[in-house]
Design a protein around this nucleic acid. Sequence first.
DNA 1: CCTCTATGGCGAA
DNA 2: TCGCCCTAGAGGC
Length: 273
Amino acid sequence: MPEGHTLRRLADSLQTAFAGRPVRTSSPQGRFAESAALLDGSRVLAADSLGKHLFVDFEDDRLLHVHLGLYGKFHVARRLPDPPVGQVRLRMVTADDGDPAYGDLRGATACELFTPEQHRALLERLGPDPLRVDAEPLRAWERIRRSRAPIGGLLMDQSVVAGVGNVYRAEILFRHGLHPLRPGLALRRAQFLALWADLVVLMQAGVRTGRIDTVRPEHVDRLGDGVRRHSYVYKRDGEPCLVCGSIVRTEELAARNSFWCPRCQPAYRGRAA
DNA sequence: CCTCTATGGCGAA
DNA sequence: TCGCCCTAGAGGC
């Protein structure tokens, strides 16, 4: 589930398993062979994430940039790897003694060495990441408050907020009673700050558990059918809202399916919320 | 077996 | 806005 929490979690496990240790890198299916060859045998210094981007710092000023895209997975385990099965695009294996670990990258959009210039340009382009303690939410607010674009699109724009994807977008808007089509400039500052604070809580929980779970305890089995829901509206179109019972709706927004409850998230009609 | 869908984003038109 | 990249799981036949 590659939204920001997945990348943060991945950076943490790579850091724990590989930091300070030399690795053998290979590209069993060739796609990222060039990156693998350039890094083979070097020492990992650190791993970090920003938004949906992963960075692995190697010695001699080399920086690996990975973006998982929609389908990518980076499986990390603290044991010796089995022979690669299927499309492993990058394999990283500890090359020193003791405590073996490996990582297998599949399906990623990007796996490349970044120049300092590329790195700087990317950092400059990305908005604040709710998972970072040094994030500046007011940078996002300055973009949102002056934009006529729908908040459901702005939240997906990585230059506004980094790390939010389609699930967190749908869920955070539900939790704050905001219709996805409400223009950014129709939000109040206090509304945005509450939304941001909630994003921090939800995404931190996502880092801890490895899954996106946004439903408050009192709503988890609200329908009384014994099914524990973990989202209020995401992919629940056609089903009853866990709060009011209205039928959850979906429509495409910013090239992705957007989900909302028509009663809890009333349509914007030119008034403040 | 097949087809569809997905938590993302880029570049061409 | 569309096509494309790439993988895996779900569901239909």
